[in-house]
Simulated assay, not measured.
Amino acid sequence: MLNFVEYTTQSALRNAGMRSVISFGIALLFFAATLVSFQVTDASAQSACFERTALMKHLSGKFEEAPVAAGLAANGSVLEVFSSPDGVTWTIVLTQPNGATCVMASGESWMGMKKPKKDKVS
């Protein structure tokens, strides 16, 4: 039969071993999650940039999208919104001053907004 000191020592060793296994598992899980987050960040950080004429031809041919809005940014870039006639698909494109044309966003269900009238507010 074990005396109290031997029993307590063996119990503490078992608990310490179990804690190290749990700690190792948590560390491994954290490491895996970190790797996955870097992969997601790297993939989402990549821009889809094309030659402007080729991109416009693709949007027109595959999705029947045409420009419906455009604006000039402070840095000289041109932001354009392309939409299909029925609004089923849309694409937002940014053309930078150096000529790079990149797709910033795309989606479905575009709804154009009417400009408010410039009447006086009473």
Rank of each mutant, 00 (worst) to 15 (best):
L2R: 06
N3F: 04
F4A: 13
E6F: 01
Q10I: 04
A12H: 07
R14E: 10
N15P: 02
A16V: 10
G17C: 07
R19D: 14
I22T: 02
S23C: 05
S23F: 03
F24H: 11
G25C: 01
A27Y: 05
L28F: 06
L28M: 10
T34N: 15
L35A: 14
F38H: 14
Q39L: 15
Q39S: 13
V40C: 03
T41W: 14
T41R: 15
D42L: 12
D42C: 05
A43P: 02
A43D: 11
A45R: 10
A45M: 11
A45T: 12
Q46T: 13
A48I: 10
C49S: 05
F50P: 05
A54W: 06
L55F: 00
M56F: 11
M56V: 10
M56N: 13
K57M: 11
S60W: 02
K62C: 06
E64M: 11
E65F: 03
A66H: 12
A69I: 00
A70Q: 08
A70T: 02
L72F: 01
A73R: 03
N75D: 15
G76E: 01
L79M: 08
V81G: 04
F82Q: 04
G87A: 07
G87N: 08
G87H: 08
I92Y: 01
V93C: 02
V93L: 02
L94N: 09
L94G: 00
L94M: 10
Q96I: 00
N98V: 07
N98R: 05
C102Q: 01
C102D: 04
V103M: 07
V103R: 00
V103G: 00
V103N: 03
G107L: 03
G107D: 02
G107C: 04
K114L: 14
P116K: 07
K117W: 09
K117S: 15
K118S: 15
K118Y: 09
K120T: 13
K120E: 15
K120C: 12
S122D: 11
